Computed example of a mutant assay.
Amino acid sequence: MGVLVSELRFSLADVAGVRLAVSPVNETVMSMWALASPIRYAVHLPWIDRARVTLRRPEVATRVRPLTELTWRGCPLPDFLTPAARPNVEMAEQLEQVAATPPAVVVQDLLATTPRRPLSPFGRALLADPRGLLPQLVDAVRVWYDEAIAPDWPRIRALLDADVAYRAAQLAENGAGRFFEQLHPSLRWLGDRVVSDDPFERDFDLRGRGLALNPTVFTERRVLWNLLEDSLPAGAYPVRAIGTLWEATATPSGDPLARVVGPGRAALLHLLDTGATTTDLARLAGMSAGNVSQHLAALHAAGLVGRSRQGRYVLYRNTDAAQVLLRASRGE
């Protein structure tokens, strides 16, 4: 049997309307897949261990159950639960968007998941009473974010923001065709369309609405499409450098670079392969924000660290010169 593919057809307006953003709701919802399949998502084991303890608390388990039932063991997600994200969108705003989903759309999206897996008890109840039970599902997403995602959100957000900055630069420098082919190995650009290896066979015309793309830490195999006729088309793709998300942050023992630039600045350079904010670096490196700022200023003045603004955040990232030093210190 051949590989199934989806085709997304672009007009010039659609190419111009490609946008990149981070979706807090998507990360919160899709994190349940990692919790249900720890072997498949082994890169997230440090988070999974903590999240499982959180979910065992009765008061959390009860309120999160609607979300658990809709996402357990890789269940296909109803599209209304993973809305397209705008740049700099916050969790509260996305939750309001989910809460405002018309009942007919809730029903339509739930039914679209049933060919691959039957609905859970809560899914069947939501199908019968979408207006009455949707608030319970929104509350479940909010509680899970507060309890399991928010403590690590600065770390997750820094990785996602760094990916958005990297991809935006690719799009600006190389154009849409090269951009999509570098976004994920399953994508190909054929002049006026993106062809995607996909378990769903679809031929979808974007019709001038553009395409919202968001990186995610909780998928690793393919791009997940949210393609509806009456809302902004969207896709969630695997973030770069996922292996760095939970790694230990101490400067390697005997690091030659630390003897040249000092242990504090060396530690920051080791953390800045993927980009981060001052707050993230302070937490990851165990330094005060003031010390991090002083080190970053010195590294920036030496041409080893660059900085760029992404919405409300200033992201710091190693320059090519810093990468040369890091490779030399690792003996590469």
Rank of each mutant, 00 (worst) to 15 (best):
Y316R: 09
R157I: 04
L245T: 10
L232I: 09
A165E: 09
R50W: 12
T71H: 00
A125Y: 07
H184D: 14
L183D: 05
P58K: 07
V3Q: 13
L271W: 02
L213E: 03
S186A: 15
L257C: 07
Q108M: 07
P46G: 09
T249M: 02
A302K: 13
L133R: 14
W225Y: 14
A266Q: 08
T249W: 04
L211F: 03
Y41S: 05
R117V: 11
R65K: 10
V22M: 02
F122P: 05
G311I: 06
E7L: 04
Y41E: 00
R40H: 13
G132H: 01
R56D: 15
V239P: 00
L55A: 13
G306K: 00
T114G: 02
V138M: 07
A99D: 07
V60W: 06
L67C: 07
C75L: 09
W153Q: 01
N226W: 00
R117D: 09
L127V: 08
D255A: 12
F10Y: 10
G123D: 03
E332G: 04
F218R: 06
W225Q: 07
M287C: 00
P151D: 09
Q97E: 15
M1E: 11
F204M: 01
A84H: 00
Q136V: 02
D152S: 14
R202Y: 03
S6T: 15
V223T: 14
V223H: 08
I39V: 15
P130V: 05
R202D: 13
R221M: 11
P76N: 00
V18R: 00
P135L: 06
G331C: 12
E27S: 06
S293P: 00
P151Y: 10
P199Y: 11
A302C: 05
R9Y: 10
G210I: 07
V3W: 12
P115V: 09
P103M: 10
L134D: 00
R9V: 12
R309H: 10
R283H: 10
S23Q: 03
A168H: 04
A13L: 13
R309G: 06
L326E: 07
A85M: 02
G262H: 02
D161M: 11
L67D: 02
S31V: 05
R283I: 07
S31L: 06
A234C: 04
A13K: 11
F180I: 03
L325Q: 07
R312V: 11
D163C: 09
V60Y: 05
L183P: 01
R65I: 05
G286S: 05
W153V: 06
L325M: 12
T113Q: 08
A289L: 04
V194K: 03
S253E: 14
S196M: 11
E93H: 13
D49G: 10
R63T: 15
V107N: 00
S253M: 10
E147Y: 08
